[in-house]
Amino acid sequence: MDIENAAKQLEALGNVTRLEIFRTLIQAGQSGMTVGDIQKKLGIPASTLSHHIS
Rank of each mutant, 00 (worst) to 15 (best):
L25F: 06
K8W: 07
T34F: 01
H52D: 09
R18M: 06
A28C: 03
P45Q: 14
G43L: 04
L13M: 15
V16D: 08
Q30K: 04
S50E: 10
L42D: 00
Q9H: 06
N5F: 15
L19K: 14
N15E: 09
K41V: 11
S47H: 13
S31K: 09
G29L: 10
I53K: 14
P45H: 14
L42H: 01
S50V: 07
M33H: 08
T48I: 08
H52G: 07
R18C: 04
I21L: 12
G43R: 01
L49D: 05
A28M: 02
I44T: 10
A7M: 11
E20G: 02
H52T: 10
L49A: 13
T24E: 13
H51Q: 12
E11Q: 13
K40I: 06
G32N: 02
V16I: 05
S47A: 13
N5Y: 15
G43I: 04
T17M: 00
K40H: 09
A12G: 01
A7R: 14
A7I: 10
N5W: 14
P45G: 07
G43K: 01
L49S: 10
G14P: 12
T48S: 13
T34D: 00
D37Q: 11
I26E: 01
I38C: 09
I53Y: 04
G14R: 09
G14M: 08
S31P: 00
E20T: 07
V35Q: 07
E4L: 12
A12H: 02
I53D: 00
T34W: 00
G14D: 05
K41H: 13
G43M: 01
S50P: 08
L13Y: 12
L19M: 11
Q9I: 03
P45C: 09
H52C: 09
V16G: 00
L42W: 02
A28Y: 05
I21V: 11
G32F: 04
T48A: 11
Q30F: 06
G36L: 04
G43Y: 04
S54I: 07
G29Y: 11
N15P: 03
H51L: 12
M33W: 02
Q9S: 01
R23L: 08
A12M: 07
L49E: 09
G32V: 02
G32L: 00
K40G: 01
V35D: 01
I38Y: 08
V35G: 06
T48M: 10
T48W: 04
G14I: 05
L10E: 03
G43A: 00
N5R: 15
D37G: 11
T34V: 00
H52M: 12
M1C: 12
A12S: 11
A7K: 12
G29S: 02
T17H: 00
Q30Y: 05
I3S: 10
E4D: 10
K41P: 05
I21F: 06
Q27G: 03
G36K: 08
S50L: 09
V35Y: 02
I38D: 03
A6I: 15
Q27F: 07
G29V: 05
R23E: 10
S31T: 02
L25Y: 05
I44Q: 08
L42I: 04
A7E: 10
I38P: 08
A28F: 06
S54K: 15
N15V: 05
E11A: 15
E11S: 15
Q39D: 08
Q30W: 03
E4I: 10
L19W: 09
